[in-house]
């Protein structure tokens, strides 16, 4: 069984962070774990970060609002600046360096800069940077079984967009290969 993990995914609206969060939450659902997914809907949405909190646990989840993340996916400058300082020591932050000019530093957190948006464009996966980063997060902190990810993707991609399933799998694999 994978470890308990509290994740924040943050970026601009439209970068697919809520979708990536749902993918991780659905992985927990497939494995019958306790999960929660909470989107920001308040004033921070006007300040450049749309974010969501995802908890995967083997115990009932208290607050679904993650204030001290174990893991962070940050896809723009304001997100990296806002959440890297809040991370628990030993945590992991994946920062999209295509979108973040200055990647913050911390001695007690593993911060990995990945040009995810650029990688997505180079591979013909426009809008797939979120899933590339999710693949990398899985590699660094395997939050579920590998086979679960494919099932979770099927649950997360809406029926009318099933043609995008292949691209999502490709993006996941690119992330895992980094």
């Amino acid at each position: 069984m994978a470890q308990n993990i509290n994740i924040i995914l943050s970026g601009f609206g439209g970068q697919g962070l809520l979708f990536a969060g749902k993918l991780i939450a659905n992985a927990g659902l497939v494995e019958g774990r306790e999960i929660s997914w909470l989107p920001s809907y308040g004033p921070e949405m006007r300040g450049g970060t749309a974010n969501c909190s995802v908890c995967l646990s083997d115990e009932p989840i208290g607050s679904p609002l993650v204030t001290e993340p174990d893991a962070l996916i940050a896809m723009n400058q304001p997100s990296a600046e806002k959440f890297v300082p809040k991370m628990v020591p030993g945590g992991i932050a994946l920062v999209d360096s295509t979108m973040t000019a200055e990647v913050p530093t911390r001695d007690d957190v593993t911060i990995i800069a990945i040009p995810a948006t650029q990688l997505a464009e180079e591979n013909g996966l426009h809008g797939g940077a979120n899933i590339i980063l999710t693949g990398k997060l899985w590699k660094e902190r395997p939050f579920c079984e590998r086979a679960t990810l494919d099932k979770a993707l099927e649950k997360t991609v809406p029926a009318k967009h099933k043609n995008l399933l292949g691209n999502n799998i490709k993006a996941l694999e690119i992330g895992m290969s980094l």
Partner: peptide
């Protein structure tokens, strides 16, 4: 409340 309304759980 807004937390329960907005959050997703199984």
């Amino acid at each position: 409340d807004g937390l329960l309304g907005q959050m997703m759980e199984p």
